[in-house]
Simulated assay, not measured.
Amino acid sequence: MLNEEAQKTEESLNKSSKVCKYISILLKIIFAIFCICWMLSIGVMTFGLIDPSLANRESAMDVPLLILYLAHGVVIALLLAALVGVFSGVAKGESPFVMAQVKKLRIIAGLLLLYAIIDNVIAQNNSLIIFSGLNSGYVSPNSNQIIQINFAPFIVAGVVYAFSFVFKYGVLLQEFSDETL
């Protein structure tokens, strides 16, 4: 019976490893595409800052927009890299219940929180929203703009942080189980 349970556990770990391998490869591809597109857009924005006639905008590119866009891209790149790290560890056959995974989940939660803050700062700055006369925000009839707040990243950050405690509990259970055997 013990041998049968060990075999089921091994099969489950192998299936998890296989799925995580594919997810890891997909995330690496997404990371590479994101970095290429991000670097190209940073280049275009920098040229727009140097020569406003090159930018396809009503107003010249401004430095705060470039800084916010850089910060936004860095946070997304770090988030993708952390996710690759989470799935790569399991893809290599490591147990998902190790303290390194707990730390990675907490880093992801922090990055999601930082992403949410930067995203909301970008959304609140009206000069960053208007491109080529197109307003992407909602404007009330009396010209007072309604401020939009995207709560999804805040909620996901909280859920990921809570999952880190579930994984920590799993680590402790696994350590306790290993000690009793």
Rank of each mutant, 00 (worst) to 15 (best):
S132G: 09
L113W: 11
V75C: 02
Y115D: 08
L83R: 06
I147N: 09
I108M: 10
G85T: 00
Q145K: 15
I76T: 10
L105S: 04
F176I: 07
G137E: 13
P153Q: 06
L172V: 10
N126Y: 15
E94Y: 14
G89R: 08
M99R: 15
I122W: 09
F151D: 07
D119S: 13
A100D: 14
S140I: 09
A91W: 04
L113D: 07
I118K: 01
A82Q: 05
V139K: 14
F87R: 03
L111F: 07
Q101Y: 03
S95G: 06
F97Y: 08
A100H: 12
L83P: 01
V86E: 02
S127A: 13
N126A: 15
Y115I: 04
A157E: 01
E175M: 06
S88H: 14
Y115P: 04
V159T: 04
Q124M: 14
Y138R: 12
A100G: 12
V75P: 04
F151N: 10
A162I: 07
S140N: 13
A82D: 05
S127K: 12
R106M: 06
L78F: 10
L79R: 03
Q174T: 10
A91F: 01
G89V: 03
V159P: 00
V84F: 03
I155N: 06
G137R: 14
G93S: 08
G170Q: 03
A91L: 01
A91R: 00
I146K: 07
K104N: 08
P153N: 06
M99Y: 14
V75Y: 00
V171W: 00
A77S: 07
G85I: 01
V102C: 00
M99F: 12
Q174E: 13
I147D: 09
V166L: 15
V102R: 02
V139A: 15
I118F: 00
G158K: 05
Q145L: 14
V166I: 15
V90P: 03
I129C: 09
I117Q: 05
N144C: 13
A123E: 11
F154H: 01
L114S: 08
A157W: 00
